[in-house]
Design a protein around this nucleic acid. Structure first.
Lengths: 138, 138
DNA sequence: CGGTATCCCGGGTGATACTG
DNA sequence: CAGTATCACCCGGGATACCG
């Protein structure tokens, strides 16, 4: 485990200074990069997979997300270059969000995790059940 | 995007009911499985990569983690079957934590994300910088 | 050594209302 | 339609103190 970096406040996953190459055990954002830690961001990204979507279109599959949270995630994803915002003219207003190549790449790499999860789904469930019953005993 | 499942409180990532195969846009835990959302858990797992470690040994690389948080993460990882706890006898007390095959598998799949991150590090930094300066303008 | 038990704080999240 | 503004709440996480 290389070089535990000194002064990195954990939790400052979003705009923290970043250090290439090195694994910093204190900063989750190096392990699970950037917005992945965010509650909604990965899901928002996923929803943009098949093409650009409008604000209100995004709210449908992400049931329960508030406008505020969606705005927040979109802004964050935009700042990190995973998503682009395009404002088309006309009334009523029309705004579209789309994935960038970078966003697509991130999503792709996340897919391998998803794939692993699906592959080992039964083991995961079993292990958890076992873990829970053991917790009962204690 | 298949079947948005009805009643899944987002945020209940840890012990929520899980649905195999399907992608549930409301539950982050299907995209980023289980403990990955947790702040420390992935890092704890990472620290166990090279072999079993004791409680206090884990606290070294994870600088700044409190005993409470470490305990919490370890318990969670244990419950989900990613880690095993072994209590050896003798005074002073001696407890060791080790990865299970499942844990190793999860970590492995996470590694692909890490690899992607490292590969695209420069792009990530550039994109973010661009995003930030754009944020200034607004 | 390997933890618990408390207290406390900040922010992430939601609910609701309002606006260009 | 695409958001902002405001309030309010919960709880993850840290600090500190204590225990077997």
């Amino acid at each position: 485990m290389p070089k535990p970096q000194a002064e990195q406040a954990p939790g400052a996953a979003s705009l923290a200074p970043l250090d290439p190459g090195m694994f910093d055990p204190v900063c989750p954002s190096t392990l699970v990069p950037f917005r992945v830690v965010d509650k909604w961001a990965p899901l928002v990204l996923r929803c943009l997979e098949d093409g650009p979507r409008r604000f209100s279109e995004l709210r449908v599959p992400l049931r329960g997300i508030t406008a505020k949270s969606l705005t927040h995630s979109l802004r964050a994803l935009e700042q990190d270059g995973f998503v682009v915002r395009a404002e088309h003219e006309g009334a009523p207003r029309h705004v579209e969000y789309a994935m960038t190549p970078l966003g697509r790449g991130l999503l792709g790499s996340l897919d391998t995790v998803c794939a692993w999860t699906r592959e080992h789904w039964d083991e995961l469930l079993d292990a958890r059940e076992a873990g829970l019953s053991r917790a009962d005993v204690r």
